[in-house]
Design a protein around this nucleic acid. Structure first.
Lengths: 195, 195
DNA sequence: TTCATTTCTTAACCTATGTGAACGGTAAGA
DNA sequence: TCTTACCGTTCACATAGGTTAAGAAATGAA
């Protein structure tokens, strides 16, 4: 079951782990399952964990002063998700994390995260690379948000993440793209009609 | 002159450096000056350096297929700027980096970056925290972009970064906020009239 | 100082996306 | 099976922000 974690690490650091290294790594995690619509992290409460998804899906979102939800991140098998700010600072969270489907996750708390990073420079490097990749992707997403119309953002999204399009409700994809569900519906119709 | 670098590091890692540690750190950098409107990094060319700004200002931007510019980041004294993707992967860059004013920078190349990180765990930690802070800020910016109107984004920007509002041309701030200069002008007029 | 260039403002008009509401389909729970 | 809540679609209308164009103001070079 944790094989996908091993692949995830090896792919990220671009080298193999010994069995012993991988065993050390996993010892810092515990596995947990949640129902659909479970809250894994909540705004204004400290986000104590980093989650690695073995099975199922979740997403994080921001709620503004008008109570409107904006999707920050989707996560399915093989993805990591947390509220970075809250996890690392220990301060109240900014985002919610909620499961979309029943989910199996590997859970890492802050203490274990620190120990893990200390135990082997390779692990610290892994988390740095994870963060680096996330940052790069996010910067690109913002550039696109500001420079492309919703239609081309949706097209790019559905090419880059076809598995998301299949599993995630449209109104959440709309929110991720920064538009309303009705607008996404209109865009999809336009694309379909053009074919 | 490099005192502001020392403050920057100590503030980020939340601890003091010994004189010797700081000296080691700075040895990996060289100082350089550029005129206004110099290109420090260019799309499709490898971005070989990370810049720390001692004096002056610069910004990074993305140019889309229609040749339209979108501002990614502003950087003044005490800021770091680079094209992360290109710098760390060695692949062709995605963004441009250009000076806004004549500038003095400390420059770090990839080889020295790696050595610096190896030489002392503290330095590796410093760069990780830098990245972490940048990621958190970027995620928040995206959340706001998708959930607030341009007017409130501008108001928040001018509260969070009053020194930017003073030094950076409005048409670049507009781009940073994801709107056109005319729209920012309209928004500013509306705010002024309301007072 | 003068001239040229860049930046900012204003205005009229346009368009992508938002809003509110209604309808039908589908999945989940009783 | 029935019921209910949720989700996606469509439509008519509203609006924030884009577009085009022109002139004013600021900046920089000569």
């Amino acid at each position: 079951m944790t094989n996908i974690l091993r692949e995830n690490i090896e792919k990220t650091i671009d080298q193999s782990l010994t069995d012993k290294e991988f065993e050390t790594f996993t010892q810092f995690f515990f596995q947990k399952s949640f129902d659909k619509k479970s809250i894994l992290a909540e705004e204004s409460k400290t986000c104590k964990y980093v989650y690695f998804i073995l099975k199922g899906s979740a997403y994080s979102y921001y709620i503004n002063d008008n109570g409107e939800k904006t999707v920050i991140q989707f996560a399915i098998e093989n993805y990591w998700i947390t509220d970075q700010y809250s996890f690392f600072s220990g301060k109240p969270g900014i985002y919610f994390i909620e499961t979309l489907e029943p989910i199996d996750v590997l859970v890492l708390n802050r203490e274990n995260y620190d120990q893990l990073c200390c135990s082997n420079q390779l692990f610290e490097r892994f988390f740095r690379l994870l963060l680096q990749n996330a940052f790069i992707a996010l910067q690109y997403r913002l550039a696109k948000t500001h420079s492309e119309e919703a239609e081309s953002r949706y097209l790019e999204f559905s090419i880059l993440y076809p598995h998301f399009v299949q599993r995630i409700p449209q109104y959440l994809i709309a929110s991720f793209l920064g538009i309303k569900p009705q607008s996404l519906s209109r865009i999809r119709k336009k694309i379909a009609d053009a074919k």
